[in-house]
């Protein structure tokens, strides 16, 4: 866990953490889009009809 240790600049590690950050944002947006597109169809397959989950 992070404490008061002062990190030094390391471009390779920054790229690594940046990649994880980017992946997280892409997944959030991507899965959100997929849910809107295929959500109703998936509900039909799983439940056998359109159900309002909320």
């Amino acid at each position: 866990m992070a404490g008061l240790e002062i990190p030094t600049w390391d471009p390779e590690t920054a790229l690594l953490i940046g990649t994880i950050l980017l992946e997280a944002i892409v997944l959030y947006v991507g899965y959100g889009g997929l849910e809107r597109l295929f959500g109703p169809y998936l509900m039909k397959v799983l439940v056998g009809g359109d159900v309002d989950a909320r």
Binding site: A2, P7, T8, I17, I20
Partner: peptide
């Protein structure tokens, strides 16, 4: 906290993508 911790571990080669 997770970002900073990952960065510190990453510097030591502890983060495997």
């Amino acid at each position: 906290s997770g970002g900073l911790g990952s960065y510190l571990y990453g510097q030591g080669g502890g983060v495997n993508l």
